[in-house]
Amino acid sequence: MTYEFTLADVAYLGTAAEALAEVDRLPLTGGSYLADVAKVRDRLGERAGPVLETVLLRRKAVTKVADPHKWLFTDAALQQATPAPVARLRARRFAGRDVHDATCSIGADLAALQATARRAVGSDLDPVRLAMARHNVPGATLVRADALRPVTRGTAVFADPGRRDAAGRRRWRAGDFLPPLDELAGAWPGADLAVKCAPGMDFAELPWAGEVELVSLDGQVREACVWTGSLATTRRRATVLRTSGPEWTVTDAEPDDCPVREVGEWLVDPDGAVVRAGLVRQYAARHGLWQLDERIAYLSGDAPPPGIRAFRVLEDGRYSEKTLRQRLRAREIGRLEILVRGLDVDPNALRPRLKLKGPNEATVVIARVGRTPVAYVCEAVLVSAPASEP
C-alpha cells in the first residue's frame, strides 16, 4: 500500500526540511527497514507516514527530475512523470510560446515548459498534486481545472492523460485513457496540441494526429508523443536520447531505399524508438545498411553506425538446437546472450539445453529469414560515438 497524501501533509512537508534530511540519513533498506521505521515513528509520530514516503519517493526519482531532494511526489504521479531529458526535449518545441499544461500533476513537465515558453500555465483536477506542483515549480501559474474544460485561449497545449486503471494496469486503447484521447483533442479545437501517449498503443486510433514521435532514453523506449497543428513537422519521428552522448532523430521524410540481402559482416538491431516508429528502412538507408528480411527489424552491413552496440557475425547457418550446440562447443562458448526475432524460442529455456562450457562468450541472434530459421553467432561490440549526431 502506498501512502495517500493530504493537503495538510503537503503543507507540512513544505516546512519539514530538517525532518526530511534526518530521515534521509537512514538506510531504509532490507535489514534495517523495520528498525528505521520504528525510529521515525518515535521521532515524528503522525508525521512519520508522509515523511517516510517522501524520502523513499525522492530516492526513486533520481532518473526523473533534477534535484529530487527538493521535490514532493505521490507514488502514482512519480511513475507517470516524464524523465527530465525527455521533458526538456519536448519543451524545446514550445519555445517562445504561451503554453498550457492541462494535466500538470506534480509539475515535472511544467518545470521544463516554464524554462522555454514565453508563459506557462499548469492545471489539474487533483488538489494534492496541484499543491505539490506549487512547491515543485516556484512561480508557476497554477489553477484547478478539468483538461476537458479549457481555461486558457490562444495557448499551445500539452497533456499527459492517465494511463493506468485503478489496479495499476496500463491502458493501451485511446478511449481508455483518462481523459480519453479523442475527447481531449475535441476539447481543444484548432489548438496546437501535444499529447503524451503509451508507446505500445495503436496510433491508427488517432486520425487527428499530425505527427507521432517515439522517444527512447539510454536504449529504453520511454514514451510516444502525438503532435498537432504547427507543432507537427513530419508524420513519424524517432528521437534517441542518451544521458551521456549526442541525441539524434530520424523521420519518415528521409529516403527509405533499403535492399534485402544476405547477412554481411555486421548485424544491427535498431533502437526501439526507430522500430516502433516504423522507420527501420529510413535508418538503414541513412547508414548504408540492408534488411535480412522485410518482416524483421534486424539490419546488416559492412560497417555499423557509430554509438551503438552492434554484432560482428562470426558464422551463420540454419538454426537447430543440435547444430547450434555443436557450433558453440567448437568455439568453447561458456557465456551466451540469446536474442530472438520472429520465432517461438524462449532464451531462458534454450540456454540450459545448449550445455554451454568454455572460457569464451558470444551472442547468438536467432531469426526467421524468409521461411528459414537462422542462427547468427556473433561478437557484441560497443561502437564508439562521434561528438556529433550519427
Score class of each variant (00 low, 15 high):
Arg237Asp: 00
Cys258Phe: 02
Gly278Met: 10
Thr233Leu: 08
Glu379Thr: 14
Ala102Ser: 12
Val313Asn: 04
Gly288Phe: 11
Arg149Ser: 15
Leu336Tyr: 09
Pro347Thr: 04
Ala91Val: 03
Ala77Leu: 03
Gly14Thr: 02
Asn136Gln: 08
Glu337Cys: 14
Ala187His: 02
Gly45Met: 08
Glu223Thr: 15
Arg173Cys: 01
Pro50Trp: 10
Arg335Trp: 09
Gly49Lys: 05
Ala204Met: 03
Leu206His: 05
Thr15Pro: 02
Ile106Cys: 08
Glu315Thr: 15
Gly96Asn: 12
Ala117Val: 05
Ala38Arg: 15
Val157Asn: 08
Ala380Ile: 05
Ala76Arg: 14
Gly175Thr: 09
Trp290Gln: 06
Leu339Ile: 14
Glu205Ile: 00
Glu211Ser: 07
Ala310Phe: 08
Val340His: 13
Gly96Tyr: 12
Arg335Leu: 13
Val275Tyr: 05
Ala380Ser: 14
Thr116Ile: 08
Lys196Ile: 01
Arg237Ser: 02
Val128Gly: 01
Arg295Trp: 03
Glu205Met: 00
Ala273Asp: 10
Cys225Ser: 13
Pro352Glu: 07
Leu72Ser: 02
Trp208Glu: 12
Met1Gln: 13
Leu28Val: 07
Asp98Leu: 12
Gln80Asp: 13
Asp98Ile: 09
Glu223Asn: 05
Val40Pro: 05
Ala102Lys: 04
Glu389Phe: 12
Arg312Ile: 05
Arg236Asp: 05
Leu34Lys: 15
Ala185Leu: 03
Leu28His: 06
Glu205Val: 00
Tyr33Arg: 14
Ala19Glu: 15
